[in-house]
């Protein structure tokens, strides 16, 4: 019984910028989800042909109300239809929530570093919103890499002051006037310094890489590190990093973080395309 599909009605569509759209869907008896999870959306043509794609959930559910962020892919089969053609009031089918790894648990108190590239902001804003909704005081720092000022999603929301949410927008091609940082891809100097490694790791944590290993190098002998340690108490101590965006962005930022000394087991990644 592959998946279980439920009907979902488009109740509102909102432009986020020239191309990106927020879609609000009403999916009766939606079970809820964690920030970072996604849904599969299924479309059916008149002749019965079906197409399915995955889209990130952009906010905690409000009853059966779910919010998706759609960046139409040039020449895409599904995303341009969802972004601009599907009529408000019409139905699609959805299944989910999906994805149990690239998620933030609102009860986690430790600091979080979010790194989003382009449309990779969608599952990341879901974490920011879930934190706000839960009244969490976990320190959040968002680094948002975007090509041009007119490509920014959630502009007003991200500009609103919030004492324990720091947002740095990093323009990769064109920055607004008087932006001190030169446009360009994310650099090591854009990253906050990693927290110092604990001097004696609590029992149950992954063994630290030998200090003489080159950054990002995996020792060729010895036990495998307990990669992606499941949500445990020990993970509460370190800065949890979430990296989402196109593959090139995720590869680049993942390497920068590891080189800077962020523990690989605390870096979770999700890629678009």
């Amino acid at each position: 019984m592959p998946g279980s599909w439920r009907s979902a009605r488009l109740v509102a569509r909102r432009p986020e910028n020239a191309t990106a759209r927020t879609l609000l869907l009403e999916a009766p008896s939606w079970p809820g989800h964690l920030p970072g999870q996604h849904v599969d959306v299924r479309l059916t043509a008149e002749d019965g042909y079906q197409a399915v794609r995955s889209y990130s959930l952009a906010a905690p559910a409000d009853g059966g109300r779910i919010e998706l962020g759609i960046e139409p892919a040039l020449g895409g089969e599904v995303s341009p239809y969802l972004a601009d053609t599907l009529p408000v009031g019409a139905d699609v089918e959805v299944t989910g929530p999906l994805g149990g790894w690239f998620v933030w648990h609102p009860e986690r108190r430790g600091p979080v570093l979010l790194m989003a590239g382009g449309a990779g902001i969608v599952p990341v804003i879901a974490m920011v919103r879930a934190r706000r909704e839960a009244g969490s005081t976990a320190p959040f720092h968002l680094l948002y890499s975007v090509r041009d000022p007119d490509r920014v999603w959630y502009q007003d929301e991200l500009a609103a002051p919030d004492a324990s949410l720091r947002v740095d927008t990093l323009y990769s091609r064109n920055a607004p006037p008087h932006t001190p940082r030169l446009p360009g891809r994310v650099r090591a100097s854009d990253l906050p310094p990693p927290p110092p490694p604990p001097t004696s790791p609590p029992s149950g944590t992954a063994p630290a890489a030998p200090s003489d290993a080159a950054p990002g190098t995996v020792p060729s002998s010895g036990p495998p590190s307990s990669f992606p340690s499941r949500e445990g108490k020990e993970a509460d101590l370190g800065t949890q990093c979430y990296v989402c965006g196109p593959t090139g962005f995720v590869e680049h930022v993942g390497n920068l973080l590891v080189t800077a000394g962020y523990p690989p087991e605390l870096i979770r990644t999700e890629r678009f395309g």
């Binding site: 592959p2 059916t44 197409a51 794609r53 239809y81 599907l86 139905d91």
Partner: peptide
């Protein structure tokens, strides 16, 4: 569902498992 949706991936029957779509890229 999805009024006005056309779709255009009809040509891989027998080779495309259910619920999949073909890509030319190599996603990661």
């Amino acid at each position: 569902f999805s009024p006005g949706f056309q779709g255009r991936t009809h040509r891989f029957e027998g080779r495309l498992p259910p619920g999949q779509y073909p890509t030319e890229d190599f996603p990661v």
